[in-house]
Design a protein around this nucleic acid. Structure first.
Lengths: 344, 344
DNA sequence: TCGGCCGCCGTAAACGTTTACGGAACTATG
DNA sequence: CATAGTTCCGTAAACGTTTACGGCGGCCGA
């Protein structure tokens, strides 16, 4: 005699009642519910998840899919860990188990997702590293699996998304640099088809146009989002005969490599070139200090979780007015790296 | 009609035979097995994991428990991501699904593990961030859940473990620095009761003793394993009136903060103080270059996975001679940071 | 020819839940 | 007092697998 049956026998009531009591169904006497809860605690009973899943067709698991390997996600810093932390706190309230699904950099993300879904692994998913055209969206939509994405995409199946404000960062940065007299401004972007690259570069071009300037294609540097990528960008930039006087670094990690590349050539951020990037725990230890954008990663995670729950029928009533699509605002922290300005 | 039943009906054979065919049981005609597999592929049948779990009492999931928050794991670099990648490749061969269980820094790891286990989440676990005395070991052993740890502990329940060679690193470093004439050598250790700290510090003291030196308690710095921790260590060190001439940094991430702290005071690694640390993708962008230890994180992950599988009855025959307990060797990469030497 | 063995397959029970359904006891209402 | 409604509970089916068991036919050896 095991599980719920044992508990029922111990209380000398039926398993049906026990189940109803535990699941908070209304049609059970509050007195018996109390007894059941008490006995459950005493005997250390916890419902078997397999039995539950089989019956309900639900797993109680939410998966957060990320890519391992700094090549894609730029996890040289702890960006995703912080976001995950925020997501976790929300799901814990609903007794949902959050797990990280780390797709190896050697495996195709689409294949990986297919495996996860085929297995019926999760009730809902959070996707990151969204591509400009992302097949995963349609795949999930077709199977009616609730999901939310960290990042926009041209593919749109109506799912909720949250995203960083790449356009805002581009606009603010360009305005700021142009005001300091810069005319040749470089921009970095991820090396692959990840969507944020397009958003960032396109908006940079647009902002420049507003000032009557154009974005020189030679000044758009593709780089892997890690330290090595930043170092490589510096080398390319230094090799040019008509160097830019300022640069926008799209992600958190490359600044470190970029600084290193500059200093090897005897150049100093903020004196010889203006830099605007993104803040991270690591970037605080750069010198001269980095001018860059920042946001609350944890709050972003919380919003992600709420957006997902809002689309899941069983939980949506908890979040009647969750923000389903939002560009997350960023603050600019002023440092020394963009102090360099040109005479008017 | 769904699942295996549908498949059986389509082939006009019994579900028992279908199941046996799919699971590679010997008592099924090879010809019918072929047909079953063919039909399964055609109809896109994949077995329902809940049904399977319920019947077999097994989940097909392996969990890799890590802590989020740089405070504990020092994930300012991608150490765990790389290890995870290695683990993943092994489990993929056995159709086991590996997920990352990220315990929030705000939650007690013991509680977290209890939840995971109570839920019957995984068939096996990989634990990291092992404490000097780690209650998780006994907890898992009592429930007979196969697990392996990345890191030793004084708690020993006979499980396999792999670990970095902290003693070797301490010994090599001390020998090397003493040979360069250093007498006052500082050491860092994590701020909490994580076991590696004890191993590292104790062995450092022992190695010093072999040279007739002692480890000054004032020269043992506890620090959070992140950039901020390293920065803080530098500040403490600089405030001393009798400064050490050399220092051992126990983990990958703190070097960056430590460098920053030094440079703010006008000191230069390798010129004013000798530093030996650990290599990481980030540390390559330090200047002067860091003398430090390195290892293949991916291979370590592979070994971890094999050790775990070797203790799981269903898989042990695949790995008859897996290394169950091993201190993983590290290579010393010589840089400029320990160039500083003292007259004899 | 017959008994035994072997290869292959079908039947049905079991895993631990949840929940639709119906019924018993009780209460309220006229 | 009869009826309707309400509250609570027990029964049993269902979720999709795996696997013990038994049976049927064919083959082999005596």
């Amino acid at each position: 005699m095991t599980g719920i049956r044992r508990l029922a026998q111990h209380l000398d009531i039926s398993i049906g009642t026990v189940s109803r009591a535990l699941n908070g169904r209304p049609d059970v006497n509050e007195e018996t519910r109390r007894k059941v809860l008490e006995a459950a605690a005493e005997l250390g009973y916890v419902p078997n998840q397999s039995g539950r899943s089989l019956r309900q067709g639900t797993t109680n698991i939410i998966g957060f899919m990320m890519q391992t390997g700094t090549e894609i996600t730029g996890q040289g810093d702890t960006f995703f860990m912080s976001v995950f932390d925020g997501v976790q706190t929300v799901f814990a309230r609903h007794h949902l188990d959050l797990v990280a699904l780390l797709c190896s950099s050697e495996e195709d993300p689409d294949d990986y997702l297919r495996r996860v879904v085929a297995r019926g692994f999760a009730d809902g998913l959070i996707l990151s590293a969204t591509q400009r055209h992302d097949p995963r969206f349609e795949f999930l939509a077709k199977r009616k699996i609730p999901f939310v994405t960290l990042g926009r995409s041209l593919t749109d199946v109506g799912q909720p998304w949250l995203d960083l404000d790449f356009e805002g960062m581009a606009q603010t940065s360009i305005d700021r640099l142009v005001a300091k007299g810069h005319r040749r401004i470089a921009v970095t972007r991820p090396h692959d088809d990840i969507n944020l690259g397009h958003l960032f570069v396109d908006q940079s071009a647009k902002a420049l146009a507003e000032h009557g300037l154009t974005l020189d294609p030679d000044l758009v540097f593709s780089s892997k989002p890690n330290e090595a990528g930043g170092y490589h960008v510096a080398q390319q930039l230094l090799a040019m005969r008509n160097r830019p006087t300022a640069i926008l670094l799209v992600n958190e990690t490359i600044a470190i490599g970029f600084y290193r590349g500059l200093s090897e050539a005897g150049l100093k951020p903020g004196r010889d070139i203006a830099i605007i990037g993104r803040q991270s725990p690591q970037s605080h230890f750069l010198s001269p200090s980095l001018t860059g954008f920042t946001l609350s990663r944890r709050d972003l995670g919380i919003a992600l979780a709420e957006a997902l729950l809002a689309t899941m029928p069983a939980f949506s009533h908890f979040y009647p007015d969750a923000e389903l699509r939002k560009v997350w605002p960023e603050d600019l922290v002023e440092g020394e790296s963009d102090a360099f300005s040109l005479p008017a």
